[in-house]
Structures are given as structure tokens and as C-alpha cells.
């Protein structure tokens, strides 16, 4: 997909709730070997939203941070898209709660998006289209989730809470989006039917025909469109359903694993679904240097991947410290027991 070559990220911000649960704590409930799980998933602990937090509150806190770095008035925003698979309402948008909480006014278009774990990057593409065509000056794209995993399911070790927000515009960009490409197909690897609390997944089918095929496909399309080679990228962020998948994807594409290090948020935060790759992008931008080229590729089950070639500008240096970094949220933590986790996430029913 062609962009105008000027538009990009004007501000970014993340939010990670302060509660954490360790793999050992979950494994002790289900009689599993924590070392085997940690080695298998490359995840040590995950972030858990408090019982007074949900996708809307996470989205608002992340967006406030993005606005601080964007240095714009809230009413300059012309579009808000919130991507999530845990919107607080089935009918009633999260995006307008965000708009009201930020003081965006009333002159904006908004919608909630759902595409499993990639709805946030779909929001970035939508904002990019509106901004580069001149229809709006700034758009706000958010990926946030309080991810669900059924008690005892393998997902419970990774399904986490968190989010990230991006102000997309043409002026004062801290990172230009050079190009974006998407690869989509009807692949039922993971789903949640109406009225169901927890998703179901097709176990190993989530790998080869889903995650690897779609991210691989989107990255290939991106390289063809930009005439870049994979070695041109300095930093790489892939969706992180666990630690193993992105590392294997990197190996398949011939990317050194060191290039994933800055954005490898999964081992200490878990899989924040729509927030996952975008939190990784925030952590990468927190440490990025001007002129660096970042490859971002999300993945959403069902299935699709959005890939982006992002070039960091000189403005990163002055904007970085205007809001809390990912690391600051990472270090602000309180460990909880499985019982408290079950209460907080509504897993205890009357």
C-alpha cells in the first residue's frame, strides 16, 4: 500500500497495568512444571489488569502518553480507532470513551476495531490513509486488551493486559511510515463466539498456516513494495503470542535475534493481544536512534498481518522523555497470587 512518504508517528505512548502473576504461580494451580512452560513459551510473568481497569482505561492512559509526545491539542485529532478483542461493551464504542476522556471535542470520526491481535495496526493503517490523503490532520490509533485465557488452558500463561497508542500525522513526525503491506486470509486458528468468555484455538494450527504464513507473507509484500532487503532493518518487532514464535519467524526470514531485543516485551508482560506488537514498537522507539529503520509486523488470528517500514527521525530525541517509557511501566509492579488474579479478572462466578 502506497503512503505519501511524509506521514508517520507524531506521538506514541504505552500503558501496562501494575499487577503481575508469575508462571510458577499459575503452574502450581494446574500441577504443571513451571520450568518446562517457561522454556517452552519464553515467558516468565504476565501483566494483569486490576478489577477497576479494562480496555477503555488502558486505552485512555496510553493515549494520554501519546498526546504528551505528540505536543498537539486534543481537539486537533480527527479520528480515533481502538483495536481490541476485549472491548468493555459489545455495543457502544470504546473509542468515544477515549475521545471524551482526552477532551477531543465532537468533531472526530471513531470506531472500534476487532481483528484478534492485529486490530491496533489496522487502526494505524486507517489513520495513515486519512492523514496522507489530507482528510484529517491527526488520527489516534490504539491497540489495547485485557486478554482472556480459560483457567487451565495453555493461553492462561500468556494472555495479558496492556496497550499502546499512536498519534499519526504529517507534521513533526518522530518516525516516518515509509510503507505498509498486509497479508490476509480466512484461516480459523483462534476464535471466540458470542456470549463466550474465553477464546478457543486450534493448538498447533496457530503456527505454520497462521502466524508464520501471514507475517512471512506481509513482510515479503513490504520488501517487494519498498525495494528494501531484510538486512536494511536495524530493529524488528513481530507480534508476540509467546517468545518462541517471533524468534522462529526471525530465523526463517534471516534476521539476527539481537534486532528483536529492544521490543521483546513478551517475556515480562505476556501477550497483550492487540497491544502486543505495538507495545514492542513503543519499547523499540524508547531506545531508537535517528535514521534507524524499524520493521513492525503484527499478526491477528483469523488471520492477517500488517507490516510497516518505519524510519526514525531526529525528533525522537526530544520527544522520548515527554511521557513515561515502557521500562518505567515494566518496573512498576506488584506480584499477585492466583486467587487474587482469579478475583480481579472475574474468573470467580457466583
Amino acid at each position: 500500500m502506497k503512503t505519501d512518504g511524509k506521514s508517520g508517528i507524531v506521538g506514541y505512548g504505552c500503558y501496562v497495568p501494575m499487577y503481575r502473576i508469575k508462571v510458577e504461580e499459575i503452574a502450581s494451580v494446574w500441577g504443571e512444571d513451571p520450568e518446562r512452560i517457561k522454556k517452552g513459551l519464553l515467558v516468565e510473568e504476565k501483566a494483569v489488569a486490576g478489577d477497576d481497569e479494562d480496555t477503555a482505561t488502558i486505552a485512555v492512559e496510553a493515549a494520554k502518553n501519546a498526546l504528551k509526545r505528540a505536543c498537539i491539542n486534543p481537539d486537533d485529532i480527527g479520528a480515533i480507532y481502538v483495536g481490541s478483542e476485549s472491548h468493555p461493551y459489545v455495543v457502544k464504542p470504546t473509542a468515544t470513551i477515549v475521545g471524551e476522556a482526552l477532551g477531543v471535542g465532537n468533531s472526530y470520526t471513531a470506531a472500534d476495531l476487532e481483528f484478534a491481535c492485529k486490530a491496533g495496526t489496522a487502526g494505524i493503517q486507517m489513520c495513515l490513509g486519512l492523514v496522507s490523503s489530507g482528510m484529517i490532520d491527526y488520527g489516534l490509533a490504539i491497540g489495547a486488551d485485557t486478554a482472556q485465557g480459560a483457567p487451565g488452558d495453555a493461553l492462561e500463561y500468556t494472555a495479558a493486559s496492556g496497550g499502546a497508542a499512536f498519534v499519526i500525522g504529517r507534521k513533526n513526525v518522530l518516525a516516518k511510515i515509509i510503507a505498509t503491506a498486509s497479508y490476509s486470509s480466512d484461516t480459523p486458528d483462534f476464535w471466540r463466539r458470542p456470549m463466550q468468555h474465553y477464546p478457543r484455538h486450534a493448538a498447533r494450527f496457530t503456527g505454520e498456516p497462521a502466524y508464520f504464513r501471514h507475517i512471512g507473507g506481509a513482510v515479503k509484500l513490504l520488501l517487494e513494495e519498498t525495494n528494501l532487503s531484510i538486512s536494511d532493518f536495524d530493529k524488528v518487532v513481530f507480534h508476540m503470542p509467546n517468545g518462541k514464535f517471533p524468534l522462529r519467524m526471525a530465523k526463517m526470514l534471516g534476521i539476527e535475534k539481537e534486532k528483536l531485543a529492544d521490543g521483546f516485551v513478551v517475556s515480562k508482560v505476556g501477550n497483550t493481544y492487540s497491544g502486543s506488537s505495538l507495545l514492542g514498537l513503543c519499547a523499540t522507539l524508547d531506545k531508537a536512534k535517528p535514521k534507524e529503520l524499524i520493521l513492525l509486523a503484527s499478526f491477528g488470528s483469523g488471520a492477517g498481518s500488517d507490516a510497516f517500514a518505519i524510519e526514525v527521525t531526529d525528533l525522537i530525541e526530544e520527544k522520548r522523555d515527554l511521557a513515561p517509557t515502557f521500562e518505567r511501566y515494566l518496573n512498576r509492579k506488584i506480584y499477585i497470587s492466583y486467587a487474587k488474579y482469579a478475583k480481579m479478572r472475574g474468573k470467580l462466578k457466583d
Binding site: 486490576g50 481497569e53 477503555a56 482505561t57 494520554k64
Partner: peptide
């Protein structure tokens, strides 16, 4: 100040933030 959920009007009512 942080933005949080204050209470819910039951399972089918509005959520107060």
C-alpha cells in the same frame, strides 16, 4: 489522577468511568 472504572450498573447497565 488516573482513568479507571468506578462501578458498573449491574451486568447489563452502563459502566461508570
Amino acid at each position: 489522577a488516573v482513568f479507571r472504572k468506578i462501578y458498573e450498573d449491574g451486568e447489563d447497565g452502563i459502566i461508570h468511568y
